[in-house]
Write a protein that binds this DNA or RNA. Structure first.
Lengths: 232, 232
DNA sequence: GAGGTAGAGTGGTCCAGCCACTCGACCGAG
DNA sequence: CTCGGTCGAGTGGCTGGACCACTCTACCTC
């Protein structure tokens, strides 16, 4: 017998309450925007203290299921989607290798630079320029310029004015860290990369989104080929 | 001046505490498995009540950052892959609107169709063709063909042979559901969409990835314009 | 009608206390 | 000495009650 006795695990009360609330929401087919009962009413109906209800609501709030408004009430934020946690663990566990990540990165960054070229503001251009300067200085000193590289790409993402891209870039770099270190410091790569960045910046400055996209695509494909090729 | 006065937004105390704790963890470079101070000590050092500390800890627990053990203490979670669930819930909470999602979708799907055109297998082409048939049949019967549409895009993603794209598409459609229902069934849209799909399929069949990418980009921009335009 | 106001209801925070649990020190029996 | 049990200190879990801060609305005044 593998499990002679099931280990007893008392779930904390607030967890039980949170689950009960989720079931209630799903069962009553409440719609996003609907208001839940007040904390005091929930506490009474569930037979627990208001503190426990509040803790459960905090959990639901963090999960993005519920929206708590001071002085107003608790509102439903979405249909209960256990999709997100599922997806998250999938990415963490799925066998995703370096080439796959580079392919995704290509799509995301090319689109980002398109938007950046369309909406560039002086501040973003400044950030990109100073990132390039940092890169040049590092390379001139024998470094790999990887910090400037990061800053440059981050500046592009910021210039999109679209938070979603920031999330994706974080996700991608996280996935990359997890697969292998695959250093970006290949001998002879830095000057090539620097030149590519200059092209991209020029296109963005001119607001030529097609040129920017093309340059970025080339840049990423070259980088991917170098890094992935090295692993073989 | 666009912003004469910055709107005052008092963050709830428990949120401030949670953030402060995260900073503390990062700043002190605590390692997974380390134990934090006790709730009572944290409360005293931060000058807040234990209740607020507990609420903050509940949030960190849900985020997967921390592990609270009854009668023992609060420990830093072991999993190094904690970033992913955090990101997912951030995406769930952040204010991301429909236009932002469409922009991301454009980048992802354009890149996906590129890869699909490069690697298409007979089975994937079959799936795409039958999705189109389903779409045609639905539209001929007065339907919106949305099911066929979904199948078509899913087939493209499958054809990439890259799981990461599947994950992103799920994330995107989840985000879309969350923002608003924004039905895709605009009058007169279905036939246009159908024609766009035919173009895409043709390019994929020929293995012309640039043409496929261009068609997909046009298709998504048109769709986005229709849906977003409708909301205004 | 426009503007202001007061009140009811809501979430936010705190406190003091007690319960439930864990762990390690201690101690006695073998 | 080793094993086993006990017990207490310290931890998180949970409660009830109190008060504060905020939002919304109905009502009143001009």
């Amino acid at each position: 017998m593998a499990e002679p006795l099931q280990p007893i695990t008392r779930s904390p009360l607030y967890e039980v309450v949170a689950q009960r609330l989720q079931e209630f929401i799903a069962g009553q087919s409440l719609r996003p925007g609907d208001r839940l009962l007040s904390e005091r009413e929930l506490a009474e109906q569930l037979g627990v203290s208001r503190t426990s209800v509040r803790q459960a609501l905090t959990a639901l709030r963090v999960k993005g299921i519920v929206d708590v408004r001071h002085g107003d009430g608790v509102y439903l934020r979405q249909a209960p989607a256990d999709l997100v946690p599922t997806l998250a663990s999938e990415v963490a566990n799925a066998e995703i290798d370096h080439p796959m990540i580079w392919e995704v990165r290509e799509g995301v960054e090319v689109q980002a630079v398109r938007l950046a070229a369309r909406r560039r503001e002086p501040e973003h251009l400044d950030a990109m320029r100073s990132a390039l300067v940092a890169m040049e200085r590092s390379i001139a000193g024998g470094g790999d310029g990887v910090d400037g590289d990061r800053l440059f790409h981050r500046a592009i993402v910021d210039a999109t004015g679209n938070r979603f891209f920031g999330f994706l870039v974080d996700l991608i770099s996280d996935a990359m860290d997890r697969t292998s270190e695959a250093s970006l410091t290949l001998p002879g790569r830095a000057p090539i990369s620097l030149q590519a960045h200059r092209e991209i910046l020029a296109a963005v400055e001119e607001g030529d989104e097609d040129a920017a996209a093309a340059s970025m695509r080339r840049h990423i494909m070259v980088s991917a080929e170098m890094v992935v090729g090295q692993q073989r």
